[in-house]
């Protein structure tokens, strides 16, 4: 849509600016402030320069958390995006069953995150959980509190359970917006199912899929509550993701300086990757607009 230039539009945005300014800029400034100061307590601060950043960058603990985090996000995206598209393609197109599927699929999305953690913590236990018990019966040595691989398996399965529906719902929305005429044209051309998907459905879903990827990346990168409840970062530090590590430093040890430096770098990584996604998204939008 061609928009008109109107500087007064700023007034419409003002409430958002004030609100988000209050709840984002002030706290962020506090963080920046801590990140360059040191204290001996009693609220006496002195500048520490960039020491905290240097320390954090040199800490093995941070790097291994980051590595774990990236691996986790990559696995999550690699499973959930294709699976979500696949589910969306198989969803009923309308009527009672479509509403039924929508409602059932939204259910995991609305469960508080720590309850999700609790559900899987129970579900995976060998003594009282269905999953753990069944696996044990089948002779598989499964114990997510002891074995790092099992812990990862549980967390990934939990996340797939929790969030695939979001991707599926978004992809479904994209699919629903394709006019019937496209399918009819494809039918006339006798296009195969794969070609319909590749040349009609996938390009039309591009926009929502980018949103899905962006949301899933950001949320999986910030994941805290679920792994905290299920594994608490263990066994050892096998599932110690960035957020868990950060909260340990900030609220556990009350190391304000290092925690603040850690926070800023954490935030910057997310910003950087998201910015790349966002730019790609905008460019895709623009290209579509020109067509």
């Amino acid at each position: 849509m061609n928009k008109t230039v109107n500087q007064k539009a700023w007034f419409l945005i003002l409430p958002v600016l004030i609100l988000v300014g209050f709840s984002a800029v002030i706290p962020l400034m506090t963080v920046v402030n801590y990140s360059i100061q040191d204290t001996f307590g009693n609220n006496v601060f002195f500048p520490a320069g960039l020491d905290w950043f240097r320390d954090t960058l040199q800490s093995d603990r941070m790097w291994s958390s980051l590595r774990r985090q990236l691996t986790f996000s990559a696995i999550i995206l690699a499973i959930e995006i294709p699976l979500g598209i696949f589910i969306a393609l198989n969803m009923p197109k309308g009527g009672f069953w479509a509403s039924f599927c929508l409602v059932m699929m939204s259910l995991p999305l609305l469960i508080p995150w720590n309850v999700v953690g609790t559900i899987w913590q129970i579900f995976g236990r060998v003594d009282i959980g269905l999953l753990g018990h069944t696996l044990a019966r089948m002779g598989i040595d499964y114990n997510y509190t002891q074995d790092a691989l099992d812990a990862w398996f549980t967390l990934v399965l939990m996340d797939v359970w929790h969030w695939t529906s979001l991707v599926a719902l978004l992809a479904y929305a994209g699919l629903r917006s394709i006019p019937d005429a496209y399918y009819q044209a494809a039918k006339i051309d006798q296009a195969s199912r794969w070609k319909v998907f590749r040349y009609i459905e996938l390009p039309k879903m591009q926009g929502v899929l980018m949103i899905a990827i962006l949301l899933r990346f950001m949320d999986s990168f910030m994941i805290y509550t679920e792994p905290f409840v299920v594994t608490g970062g263990g066994p050892g530090s096998a599932t110690n993701f960035l957020s868990i590590d950060l909260v340990n430093v900030a609220l556990g040890q009350m190391d304000l300086g290092p925690a603040a430096a850690y926070s800023i770098m954490y935030y910057l990584v997310i910003l950087l990757i998201s910015y790349v996604f966002y730019t790609v998204m905008i460019n895709l939008d623009k290209r579509d607009g020109m067509k």
Partner: peptide, 21 residues
């Protein structure tokens, strides 16, 4: 984009400053 970045802010980063604020 700046607005969107706030959606990307990890709650873990904001927990302590929020508490103080």
């Amino acid at each position: 984009f700046w607005l969107l970045t706030n959606r990307m802010a990890p709650p873990a980063v904001f927990a302590l400053p929020f508490f103080q604020l």
